[in-house]
Amino acid sequence: MDFSGMNQAEQAHMTKVIEKKQMQDFLKMYSNIVEKCFSTCCNDFTSKALTSKEDTCVTNCAEKWLKHSERIGTRFAELNAEMMEAQQK
């Protein structure tokens, strides 16, 4: 996105808006990973503690989600850069 059409006051305000949204996105990603990894990994309700099998699964699941999001982020940024370049031609 291109905020060059904004004056300084607007850009400063926009920076705050973006920071807030990033915070919200981050929290949303967090609760999303919790939900998804819980659903996949936890199926034993004979106790309230995680079994060691569940524990391993959750740890790996979270790890993979983070790497996955990161990779998508990188590819997506490349795609956006390409599209912006194409527009300027």
Binding site: T40, T56, C57, A62, K67
Partner: peptide, 11 residues
């Protein structure tokens, strides 16, 4: 990526 059980944390 989805699996029924996650055996490791790498892609």
């Amino acid at each position: 990526v989805a699996a029924r059980f996650y055996t490791d944390g790498e892609l």
